[in-house]
Write a protein that binds this DNA or RNA. Structure first.
Lengths: 198, 198
DNA sequence: TTATTAATTGATCGTCCGATCAAATTTTAA
DNA sequence: TTAAAATTTGATCGGACGATCAATTAATAA
């Protein structure tokens, strides 16, 4: 039946995507080829072209997969909290935790974001997402609502603070801080953010 | 004479590097080739190989050039200030200003950092620099000294705050904030940072 | 001026890539 | 069981790449 077929196809597509993530992590976007992804997945090169319309399509689907995985993880933890302060802390901690727990995913995400481009050749990292980026929207919502309900102070710009927080989270991945552990960084970051919003 | 020769060579090398920066900005690292750089510089492909040992060598030299340009700009502005608070604000504002004034340089820097790799295949963005990164060292010094001299408060970790600031600066490039101008962002960011360190 | 060295060209080589497709295999439906 | 459809293989194609190098031109020094 269709269900079974689409199930097989879906499983194969996920297998290919996971192989792509591994290869991206190991050798980076520049050196990643369909042949190497096929070898990693123990399938033939042609099979990738059968399930994806080309390299670009595979990379786009891998990006979507990675963004969704991250979103599911972060959103789950945030949703468990009730106050905006708790949600804000959960957001930061969940992001940092995800990076540690899913290093390959985080690296693959970076490799794609900084190399893949839209059909009009604009790199994803210079794209103005806003509406499409669920994670960024969630963070902005937390900051806005926390301010509206007077749980946070009024002396900060939610848009700007949102960027600061996202930057601080991203930067952690890029600069391996030996001096302090991840827990320590998480603690210090939330402390600093609370100083800004409270 | 040697001086004249090395002067010509140096001029040619800089011409090639500047062409590389333009091409990197326009089409990204993945699509950048020596042939395209040569065409941009109106020279033959072989000439690039004459002045650089290969593509990798050219990219490494371009990276060094870009880092130095940024460093000269930022350090100059910071050095003009006397107090650590002034230096900290100058550091942030100079970084943001450089990105706006030298967009091509900033984009080319990103393209290289996220794609070029060391001889042992470690991507630069996962490298633990610390000592070599003058800009990062300067920021840490400002935070440390400001704390030592009690110009800043003691309730923050300089290493962590350094990462937060660098992340916030980098993130500005990546998320074009339409809502607020660069000046506004600069103002809000320094305000937030001062809340953390004061 | 002339011999030597430096700088530059552009054609060419081998390699790897993404994409294609006829053939083989497996799965599904009748 | 059998015909049809879906899945998978692996060889092959044209193209772009980085690198090389003999040949040419320009600059320098004697």
């Amino acid at each position: 039946m269709e269900d079974k077929q689409s199930f097989i196809t879906e499983a194969r597509r996920e297998q290919i995507i996971k192989a792509a993530i591994e290869v991206l992590k190991e050798i980076g976007y520049v050196n990643t080829s369909l042949a190497k992804i096929a070898r990693k997945a123990n399938i033939s090169t042609g099979l990738i072209s059968y399930h994806f319309s080309g390299k670009e399509d595979l990379m786009n689907n891998t990006l979507i997969y990675l963004i969704e995985q991250e979103w599911l993880f972060v959103n789950k933890r945030v949703a468990q909290q009730s106050t905006w302060t708790e949600k804000l802390i959960a957001f930061i901690e969940a992001n940092l935790a995800y990076q540690v727990l899913n290093l390959a995913n985080s690296i693959a995400l970076i490799e794609i974001v900084f190399n893949a481009r839209t059909s009009d050749q604009i790199p994803y990292y210079l794209l103005e997402d806003d509406e499409e980026d669920l994670k960024a929207s969630l963070l902005k919502e937390i900051l806005f609502k926390g301010q509206e309900t007077n749980e946070f102070g009024g002396d900060f710009n939610p848009e700007v603070v949102s960027t600061i927080i996202q930057g601080a989270i991203s930067e952690t991945m890029l600069s391996p801080q030996n001096k302090h552990s991840h827990e320590e960084y998480s603690l210090e970051l939330t402390k600093g953010v609370l100083k800004i919003v409270k």
